[in-house]
């Protein structure tokens, strides 16, 4: 049941039509959550049941179970309805374990960090 006020329910842009459906929620920090919408309000605060985070690194992905989540509306970018008839991801992507995706994430982070620190060294050399 939703506790949104009447004006929210009748607003056609409300999330009412997404209640009890499996959704993808994109957050401002780039994270992708999936779960079933159980409640929302006018700020787009949302309650997701059976939530999981879908982590994607290159062609690898993993769904990490999270449980019941209340998401603060401010951090919501987009809420999309998942078409259950369609493949959720392109066929070339491979599901891996949580441990493996964490390793891949770290490798990706290290590569960007290296690029940044090399640039800093170059800047230092440019000084003279």
């Amino acid at each position: 049941m939703s506790w949104a006020g009447p004006e929210d329910i009748y607003l056609s842009t409300s999330l009412a039509s997404y209640l009890d459906k499996k959704l993808l929620v994109l957050l401002r920090d780039g994270r992708k959550l999936m779960g079933i919408l159980r409640s929302f309000d006018q700020f787009a605060n949302a309650v997701l049941e059976g939530a999981c985070e879908r982590v994607i690194v290159g062609d690898l992905y993993c769904d990490i179970p999270l449980g019941l989540y209340v998401i603060r509306g401010e951090n919501v970018v987009l809420i999309g309805e998942l078409d259950l008839e369609r493949e959720e991801l392109p066929p070339h992507m491979t599901r891996v374990s949580a441990a493996e995706i964490k390793r891949a994430q770290k490798a990706e982070r290290d590569a960007t960090d290296l690029k940044g620190s090399m640039r800093k060294r170059m800047e230092f050399l440019d000084m003279d």
């Binding site: 690029k115 090399m118 640039r119 170059m122």
Partner: peptide, 9 residues
């Protein structure tokens, strides 16, 4: 962007 080889901007 930062160049992959020279690390130049």
């Amino acid at each position: 962007e930062i160049d992959d080889e020279t690390y130049e901007e």
